[in-house]
Amino acid sequence: MRRQLPVWLGFIAGMLVIIARYFAFPGFTQVQKTLDNWAMYSGAAAFLMGMINLTIVHKTNIQRRRENWGASLVLLIAMFGYFIYGLFTGPDDKLFVSIFNATISPLGSAMFSLLAFYMLSAAYRAFRMKTLEATILLAAGLIGILGNAPIGAAISPWIPSARNWMTEILNTAAMRAVTIGTALGAYAAMVRILLGIERSYLGGRGD
C-alpha cells in the first residue's frame, strides 16, 4: 500500500485533468476547478519546508563545528529574525522592505553577476578553433558578441543584420526541432509518471 497508494493518487489526479480537458464532462470540470484551488493551498501549506531544510543542515554544521559554522549561525539568526519580524508586520512594513532592499536585492544581483568574469576567462581559454565545427561556432559567437550590443552596428550595419539572420533563421530552426523533441520527450515522461513506471520523484527514506 505504501508504494501503490501514492502512484494511484497521482494517476487519478492526472487522469481527472485529462478527462476534464478532452471530454469536458461538466462534473469533471467542476472537480478540476476545486482541485486547482486545493493544489494551490496545499502547496502554500508547505511554506516552511525551505526554512526547515536550511535549519537542519545548518544546525548540524554548528553542532559539529564544521568549517564556516559561524556563517551557519548567522544564517539561522538572519532567517528566523527576518521571519518572525515579517510574520508580525507584513510585506509592506517599511523596515521589512528596507531589509529586502538593503540585503536580498543587492546580494542576489551581485552573486549572479560574478559569472561575467568567469565567462571572460572561459571565452579566452576555451573558445578555440580546433575543428571545422568549432570554427563555425566561434564565427557565429563572434558575430553575435558584436551584434548584441550597439558596437556591432557602429562597426558595420552588416553585423547586426547577420546576427539577426543567424538568430531568427538558423538558430530558430534548430531550436524549433529541439522544442518539438523535448515536448515529445516530456509527454513520454509524464505518461510514465502517471502509469507509475517512473517513481524517482517519490524517493527518500522509509518505505
Binding site: 493551498y41 511554506f47 536550511l54 544564517l75 528566523f80 515579517g86 521589512f96 540585503t103
Partner: peptide, 23 residues
C-alpha cells in the same frame, strides 16, 4: 557570510509572503 545571510533572508522572505498573501 554575505552568501549565508542572503540564503537565510531569502528563505524567510518567501515564507513571510506566503503567510501574509495566501495563508
Amino acid at each position: 557570510y554575505m552568501e549565508h545571510i542572503y540564503i537565510g533572508l531569502a528563505a524567510a522572505h518567501g515564507a513571510v509572503l506566503t503567510f501574509h498573501n495566501q495563508l
